[in-house]
Amino acid sequence: MANILAIETSSDACSLSLLFHNSEYHFHEILPKQHTERLLIEIKRLLRLANAELKELDAIAVGCGPGSFTGIRLACSVAQGLAFSNDLKTIQVSSLEVLAKNIYDKFKSEDIVSIVNARMKQLYVGEFLYSEQGLIKANLFVSPIEGFELKAYNKNTFFVGDGCVLIEKRLNKISKNLLVNLPSAKDLLELAKDKYAKDELLDPSKLLPVYLSGEEQWKKA
């Protein structure tokens, strides 16, 4: 199997997983505002733990967001640098899909909605539909908290993500399936294995954050 380092820092969780010679190594801690100072230290620690060298890896996978702008840029920049310097490929994964993957693997739920707090009274939303074969449909968008439309969901829908707490009462009326998780590199790694097998690999220059929100909001009226 491939050797893959997975980096997920789109939320307050600083989350890393390493697959090396068929063994897995994980680091997951809630470290608000400390990703910058901790990320490289923890990557080095994980590599040492596995007795692995960067050049022995095949790919670096990143949860590219949406999420904290600083967090997703940090993960992408670090992955770009590590991959560029060692001729590695990179794998881009949506952090919303990382959240959904956890629920799908745990509960086999087929209708999963990831909801992440986007600040500025907005939500990042990912609607994921699964069958026995895996993911069949994904729809990602930004919605204002106020106008977030819930009509399409039902009692079998599973809501996941830190954005759920912002609209908990409304979600509870629809479904009791609700988990306020943060995206984890362990789930990211599972998705990255699939993508690696399907050869969905990018050159480091193509590995970019996914903001979902455009540049319009900075235009002054």
Partner: peptide, 18 residues
């Protein structure tokens, strides 16, 4: 801050990589 961080993160990870 934000722009500084992009260069710092790339530079240090290149340093680690090389």
């Amino acid at each position: 801050r934000g722009p500084l961080l992009t260069g710092a993160a790339l530079a240090q990870s290149l340093g680690l990589g090389w």
